[in-house]
């Protein structure tokens, strides 16, 4: 899709390129400067023990606002209209409920585990840890398989470099940048750079939303969505749009995002007390709300902008057919490139790219650590030396990096990025929900039930569009996800009742 061929030009100028370069170098320099002082402190994780409240909140919301989140949310706003807001509402409500009740996260914090596979071992034994760690890593790597492509589509849309060859060049360049960034040690938990990111992204996101409303007009936005999407553009329960099953699925996704996903669990388990875990979740409900809501609105604004421009409408909203997901992903950055003045465009792009590198870095570390610590190391009777672990982690980081480059270039998405991420994540979390809830709250949950429940997660791959095409079926990904969750729960209960544990794992205490 070459937009310049149809006369669509971005307002991205040399000034913006300069801002991006200076900001990215600056944010890395801040991290390197701070690290000189703190190289001897190794047991402190961000948002954790003793972090002051404002910096804690800034860090927490800053880490939730990644470029990939903004991209998939904007696409969902573009394709779903205002009805997509229910996803943000569901994730805020679940985070608030988890904060008020301590559901899942408080018992995990009390067990003093730091990762989900560690919980598996403490509750169900060594074998469940290895299987669970393998599924977690596979699901997580598949889940981040489209990160590089989403980041590259953002760069293409905002800079106007929209030819197909640009995608390959930008994806490769971004991967090299991310690997260099990770090799520098990553800024994953340097709170000062997280704070700078929070301020920049908050100001630029709110300013962009206000500019969108000013440019398009609120009534025009409502009327255009109403005219082109009808009831389905506003009512999330409308069968022509999302439908009731999708809304229920989103509440599960909200619970997963805040209490079951590995990165969230690490944060919860590193807090100094049970009270601070609950407080963190109550505050983070604002972050979970905003990280989706504002990008949804930018996606809706892009939809209205494209509908008002005949040359763009023919590309992004073709008559009688749905646009390709890769095209709808590019709608928001193209809209920003036309809305924002030079300078502000560079600031937004710089903040987004810095967030992209930080998110990518922490996920690369997360999944390579899971593979090293939870899959490979437990297979050796005497464990692995620290040197071997470090080497293995580095090999996994580079291997995963190459995988997501190849996967992003060759995988035919065929559905909204959010739905792809929900289903690829479901391979892990459908089983994990059952193991966590029953493992923490039901004494009779057994090892056999855990094995069966974990394995059922593979059924979620039926929710991926290319798999459905190969099987010749068409089922909503929400229905697939809900059925697999029900199956995981049923197998956990049946397996536990039919094959109860004779002995609890030695270090598990009720």
């Amino acid at each position: 899709m070459d937009l310049s061929a149809v006369g669509i030009q971005s307002s991205f100028r040399i000034l913006d390129w300069g801002i991006v370069a200076v900001y990215l170098i600056g944010i890395v320099a801040v991290g390197v400067y701070i690290k000189r002082y703190i190289s001897n402190v190794t047991d402190f994780i961000v948002a954790g023990r003793g972090l002051k409240i404002f910096l804690g909140i800034a860090t927490m919301i800053g880490t939730e606002l990644g470029l990939v989140t903004v991209m998939y949310s904007a696409q969902k706003g573009f394709t779903g209209g205002f009805a997509a807001f229910h996803i943000a509402l569901a994730s805020a409500i679940t985070a608030l409920v988890v904060g008020l009740t301590g559901f899942i996260v408080v018992p995990l914090r009390k067990m003093k585990v730091m990762t989900i596979p560690e919980f598996y071992e403490r509750r169900f034994g060594h074998g469940v840890r290895i299987l669970g760690g393998t599924i977690l890593a596979l699901s997580g790597i598949l889940n981040m398989g489209m990160f590089l492509k989403a980041g590259s589509i953002f760069v293409m849309g905002i800079t106007g470099m929209t030819e197909d060859i640009h995608l390959k060049i930008i994806m490769t360049a971004l991967l090299v940048m991310v690997l260099l960034y990770t090799a520098l040690g990553g800024m994953v938990s340097v709170v000062v750079s997280d704070y700078i990111q929070f301020v920049l992204l908050s100001v630029s996101l709110v300013a962009t939303c206000v500019l969108s409303i000013k440019s398009l007009g609120w009534h025009n936005i409502i009327e255009t969505v109403s005219a082109l999407k009808g009831q389905a553009g506003f009512d999330p329960f409308d069968a022509e749009g999302f439908g009731a099953s999708y809304v229920i699925w989103m509440f599960f996704l909200g619970l997963v995002s805040c209490a079951v996903w590995q990165t969230a669990v690490i944060r919860a388990c590193s807090m100094e007390s049970v009270r601070s875990v609950k407080r963190l979740y109550v505050w983070s409900s604002v972050g979970f709300l905003i990280r989706n809501l504002l990008p949804f609105f930018l996606g809706i604004s892009a939809f209205v902008y494209m509908a008002d421009d005949p040359s763009l409408k023919s590309i992004f909203l073709p008559e009688g057919a749905d646009a390709d997901p890769q095209v709808t992903l590019m709608a928001m950055p193209v809209f920003l490139s036309r809305l924002l003045p030079a300078g502000l465009l560079g600031i937004v792009a710089a903040g987004m790219l810095a967030a992209f590198m930080s998110t990518h870095d922490s996920y690369l570390l997360c999944w390579s650590s899971v593979l090293t610590q939870d899959v490979v190391a437990p297979c050796f009777k005497n464990g692995l030396s620290s040197k071997a672990r470090l080497l293995l982690t580095r090999v996994f980081i580079v291997t995963i990096g190459i995988f997501i480059l190849v996967w992003g270039l060759w995988y035919d998405l065929g559905q909204d990025l959010w739905d792809y991420m929900a289903i690829s994540g479901a391979i892990y979390f459908t089983g994990a929900i059952a193991l966590l809830i029953f493992g923490l709250y039901w004494k009779r949950a057994s090892k056999v039930g855990a094995y069966l429940s974990l394995t059922s997660g593979f059924g979620a791959v039926v929710g991926l569009k290319p798999v459905q095409t190969a099987l010749g079926i068409e089922v909503s990904s929400a229905i697939v996800g809900l059925v697999v969750i029900a199956l995981a729960v049923a197998l956990m209960v049946a397996g536990s009742l039919l094959y109860p544990d004779r002995n609890k794992p030695s270090d598990y205490k009720e």
């Binding site: 404002f54 909140i57 800034a58 919301i61 205002f82 009805a83 807001f85 943000a88 509402l89 929070f198 301020v199 908050s202 100001v203 709110v206 939303c209 609120w218 409502i222 109403s226 009808g230 009831q231 506003f234 009512d235 604002v286 709300l289 905003i290 809501l293 504002l294 609105f297």
Partner: peptide
């Protein structure tokens, strides 16, 4: 449909205002 239009309008502007407030205080 009118209910949902009003609901999402109030929801969006209230959330934007809360977030802007939180962002200023936290910054």
């Amino acid at each position: 449909m009118n209910f949902w239009i009003y609901f999402w309008t109030v929801f969006f502007f209230a959330s934007l205002a809360v977030f802007a407030g939180v962002a200023i205080v936290v910054s």
